[in-house]
Amino acid sequence: MSGAVIPTPAVQEELAGGEPATISGRARKRLTSRWASLAALIIAVLWTIPTFGLLLTSFRPEQSLKTTGWWTWFTNPELTLANYDEVLYGGTALSTYFINSIVITIPAVVIPVTIACLAAYAFAWMRFPYRDTLFVAVFALQIVPLQIALIPLLRLYVDTGLHGAGSFWPLWISHTIFALPLAIFLLHNFFKEVPAELVEAARVDGAGHVTIFLRIMLPLVTPAIAAFSIFQFLWVWNDLLVAVTMVGGTRDVAPLTARLAELAGSQGTEWHLLTAGAFVSIVIPVIVFLSLQRYFVRGLLAGSVKG
C-alpha cells in the first residue's frame, strides 16, 4: 500500500474526537430539512439494496433464483439452506477454501505486525547508525505498487523451493513484505508518542530495550496495534492479486477469493453457488469489522488504507 497517512496520533485524536467546543450553535442544524433526510435515505437505500438482493437470493431455491428476480420473493416466499450446503460441502468445496483463507490470514497478520513492532520501536527509541536515513527509506517504500515486485518475487520462491505444492510460505512471506512499510511507519508514530520520561525512568531502573519494549511499550500502543491488525486481516482475507499470482487456483492453498473469482468467471454462471459463496466469504470480515469498528475507524483515520 502506499498512500494516505495522517501522521501523528494527536491529530487523529483531534479528528476523531469530535465534540465541538460549544454545542449551542451547531446542534440540530441539519436533517431538519426534509429534503436532506430524503437525500440521505435514498443514498442509504441505494447502498443497501445490492447486498440485500444477493443475501435474499442466496437463500432461494436454485430453480427460482435462476428464473426470477429476488423481488418476486415477496409475493412467493420460499427459503432454503440448500445453496449453502452445496457450496460448502458439494463439488465446489468452499469449506476447504475457507480453511485456506484462515490458514493464510492468521500468520500473515501475526508475522508482519510483530516484525513491524520491533522495527518501529527501534526507529523510535534506539540509537544506531543511519537510523533516520533508513527510516525515510522505509517510508518511501510505501509508494511501491506491489505489482512491481510480483514477478521477481515469484521467481525467488521457485528458486529457493518455497513455492511447492501445499506450501503457504509464498503467501505468508509476500503479505508480510507488502505490509511492512506502512506498518512500520504507522506504529513508529504511535511508539514515538509515548512520553520519554517513562522510557528514561525504566532505563534508570536498569531495564534493557527488550524489557522496555515488552513491558512498557506494547501495553501502551495496543490500540494502534489492534487497528493495524484489523486492517491487515481484512486486506489479506480480501486479497485476490497476491493469491492468484503466487499460488494460482490450486485447491490446496488458494483462498476463498481466488475460488470465487474463478466461479464468477466460468461459463454458464452457477448463480446459486455464487450467491451463497459470496456470503460465505463476506461473513468473517463483516463480523471482524462490526465488532472492532472503533479500532477500524481509528486505523482508517491514521491512514491504514491499502491500495
Partner: peptide, 10 residues
C-alpha cells in the same frame, strides 16, 4: 469490509 471479489459478485 467486503472483498472486491464479493462486491463484484453482488
Amino acid at each position: 469490509a467486503i472483498s472486491l471479489v464479493g462486491a463484484s459478485i453482488i
